[in-house]
């Protein structure tokens, strides 16, 4: 351990927390939200994207290593760190202090949301044994059900907005923490750019929710061979 002292280990841990927020979690969030926004184009493209993912080999490993472990690490580090925070927004009402408070709040909200989101989608998918081409119809049906009610819609609206905010604001924090952005003006410019990222992600998410709510279309389950059979002839 002569490369890294005990003190530096703490540093590495925190830096990793900051980094996991960007990759893979942040990157995944972007992919997830933009892929899901295919739903606004139509059910079929959306369905195909789910098919593509659910046909990946070693899916469970990919998800565990690149999503679940970083996510759990990021979440638990986040909770551990925010334990130290002494919120004082009431006394010191500055925008940045508001964002600091909101960052920790949104992190907690996203965590709760994800428990719900994973618990109502991926978990039943696994327990019901819906793999490969069976996954998409199953999941789309769940989503259609979800967005029938205002409760579902609101849960998702809050969840998506929180995640987008947490990511965009976290991106800004990442840049400062790693020293990518130093000057006061550079910090301000970065904040502007990242808030744009946040807005785009939120809009994509909301559009998807809207589409689901307004057109809860089901699809014919696709199975292996149906497409190739039609297209191949």
């Amino acid at each position: 351990m002569d490369r890294v002292s005990k003190d530096q280990l703490h540093y590495l841990l925190l830096k990793t927390h900051s980094l996991t927020g960007l990759v893979p979690i942040g990157a995944y969030l972007c992919v997830h939200l933009s892929v899901n926004s295919l739903r606004t184009v139509g059910v079929l493209p959306y369905q195909l994207s789910i098919d593509a993912i659910n046909n990946l080999p070693f899916l469970i490993w990919i998800e565990t290593i690149f999503i679940y472990i970083p996510l759990l690490f990021h979440s638990f580090m986040g909770f551990y760190l925010s334990k130290n925070a002494r919120y004082n927004l009431a006394r010191y009402r500055y925008p940045r202090n508001g964002l600091y408070t909101l960052q920790r709040l949104s992190g907690a909200v996203v965590f709760v949301f994800l428990v719900y989101h994973v618990g109502t989608t991926v978990v039943p998918k696994w327990t019901n044994g819906k793999h490969l081409f069976e996954a998409a119809p199953f999941l789309i049906e769940i989503m259609n059900m979800e967005f029938q009610t205002w409760t579902g819609r609101i849960i998702y609206l809050i969840g998506i907005a929180s995640a987008a905010f947490h990511f965009a604001n976290g991106l800004w924090g990442f840049c400062i923490s790693w020293g990518l952005v130093v000057g006061v003006r550079a910090q301000r410019n970065a904040a502007l750019a990242f808030s744009l990222v946040g807005v785009v992600l939120t809009v994509m998410g909301l559009a998807t929710v809207f589409e689901f709510s307004v057109h809860p279309e089901s699809t014919v389950p696709t199975i292996a061979g149906v497409f190739s059979g039609k297209g191949g002839g």
């Binding site: 003190d7 530096q8 703490h10 940045r96 924090g173």
Partner: peptide
């Protein structure tokens, strides 16, 4: 730099940026 990399060091900053305001 080593001294600010331990627990309570630079990485613990949460960027609330109230410091600079006051």
């Amino acid at each position: 730099l080593d001294a600010v990399m331990g627990e309570g060091g630079i990485a613990d900053c949460g960027n609330a940026q109230v410091c600079v305001e006051v």
